[in-house]
Amino acid sequence: MKAKALNRSLWVFHVNTGSCNGCDIEIVAAMTPRYDLERFGIKLVGSPRHADVLLVTGPVTRDMKKKLKLIYDQTPDPKVVMSVGNCGNSTGVFYESYNIEGPIDRIVPVDIYVAGCPPRPEAIIDGVVKAWKKLEEMKKK
């Protein structure tokens, strides 16, 4: 099963855990013609059960904590979790709040951190390439 998971292009599932939309629109921008991640066969899918990579944005609100864990568990192994944007990496400007449980790496293990507020599409593509490499390594093990 493990080896077969990478015999095709990378499929990505995007979870917003309370982000401001900035990262989310840059993720979509990375998919659309200017940056065109889809030319590598990388695409956003509608269910975590189909995904190899989880793209997580946002500082993780109280309500989304359980849902993020659920989505993580639904994603088949081997998988890579990418935290996109400063909110997800360190909760960013929302560092002090009564409704935030983040950053993401306190809820689920994160493999790749993409910095920026929001990160440029190039940075997101760079992150996806790193995720690819990491999955290759996982496959070898």
């Binding site: 946002g58 609100t61 109280r62 309500d63 849902k67 929302f94 709040s97 009564y98």
Partner: peptide, 14 residues
């Protein structure tokens, strides 16, 4: 509506 509530208005008073 509770998924994106980050408590911004409260944080601003600090």
């Amino acid at each position: 509506l509770s998924q994106v509530h980050r408590g911004i208005e409260w944080a601003a008073t600090r």
